[in-house]
């Protein structure tokens, strides 16, 4: 930190001048705090107040206390279902993206393969594609009538009738998991890549001298040294996981159908309804229940807190145990 306290400098004039300058750090941070407080803090707090009311956004709000919370936790089955769906997706995709990302990064980092740069870019491409377009792409791939996957399977003679991937709850969920993995594996790979290139080569060379196998090097050097990155990614994945909305929303919007229908809210039997989708639909979609939507936002927040804290504690315990070995 640069010290511009008056003690370090001589002269009374300079002192006064520097004191005058101490206003600048505050001016520099002001825009951030003004915008953040006006458009993030304020809505967060105001959402809590709305959650205590019954309100459609137009008429006079009616104070109902905690009724909205009671509604989403005990009466409307779909809020908890949306949380359950979100957890289901995370239970599959977090291990997959982290393990695959880690393996890909360590395999393609250690050797100077031809075309590694092209490979890295290709794997990363899905991550920067518009999420809406990813939903549409998977809709095109797995559509019942015109889906590419169905057409290929039929051509190969593997299936007699087209599979309704997006219409059966269990299959639809698998497609969503696949979509998330397809999008995020590259991102995780890049992250681990940077982490691995930060590990000193000498460690691996010393292990080579001891005759360690690639597997031993991976589990004893790579994973322990990447632990901070893995922990960071797990926590962030939980926070991002609860924000899932764009891709599933578009995937089930029946984009490919010629009728231009509005599609299934939440996928077949609401099996792919996510937390944010529930909030959106309750407040701005099929219903205009702002209070209930706001309560669902705070409900979701509660689950984010619980699960990211739980993950944090579990990882600390695992970390301590493996440290004792």
């Amino acid at each position: 930190m640069s010290k511009i306290g008056p003690q370090t400098q001589g002269g009374k004039g300079l002192k006064r001048k520097l004191k005058g300058r101490m206003i600048w750090p505050y001016i520099f941070i002001l825009p951030f705090f003004i915008i953040y407080i006006a458009f993030n803090c304020y809505p967060l707090i105001y959402t809590f107040i709305i959650s205590l009311n019954d309100w459609d956004g137009f008429s006079q709000p009616v104070s109902v206390g905690l009724a909205n919370y009671k509604n989403i936790f005990t009466e409307d089955p779909y809020f908890l279902k949306s949380i359950g769906n979100t957890l289901f997706f995370m239970a599959f995709d977090i291990p997959i993206v982290i393990i695959c990302g880690l393996i890909l990064a360590s395999v393609f980092n250690s050797r100077k393969l031809k075309g590694a740069g092209f490979f890295r870019t290709a794997v990363f491409l899905p991550y920067i594609t518009i999420p809406v377009a990813i939903g549409v792409l998977f809709c095109l791939l797995f559509d019942w009538n015109s889906g590419t996957v169905n057409l290929i399977l039929a051509k190969l003679g593997l299936i007699e009738e087209h599979i309704n991937f997006l219409g059966v709850p269990r299959l639809a969920r698998m497609i969503v998991v696949m979509m998330i993995c397809w999008k995020y594996i590259g991102y995780h790979m890049i992250f681990f890549n940077a982490g691995i290139s930060g590990i000193s080569v000498e460690l691996y060379e010393a292990a080579d001298v001891d005759g360690a196998s690639a597997f031993v090097k991976f589990t004893r050097i790579t994973i322990p040294l990447l632990k901070p990155i893995i922990e960071y990614l797990v926590i962030m994945n939980i926070i991002w996981g609860f924000q899932l909305f764009d891709e599933p929303k578009v995937l089930f919007s029946s984009w490919t159908s010629s009728s231009g229908g509005s599609g299934l809210m939440g996928g077949p039997l609401k099996s792919c309804l996510t937390a944010i989708w529930y909030i959106y639909d309750t407040s701005f979609g099929s219903q205009m229940r702002y209070g209930k939507g706001a309560a669902a936002a705070y409900g979701t927040f509660l689950f984010i807190l619980i699960f990211s804290l739980a993950a944090f504690v579990v990882m600390k315990i695992i970390g301590r145990k493996s440290g004792e070995d």
Partner: peptide, 15 residues
């Protein structure tokens, strides 16, 4: 960084 902005969505739209 840890608080998803979407959670304030309802009030944000009202604002």
């Amino acid at each position: 960084m840890m608080i998803p902005t979407q959670l304030g969505l309802v009030a944000f739209v009202v604002e």
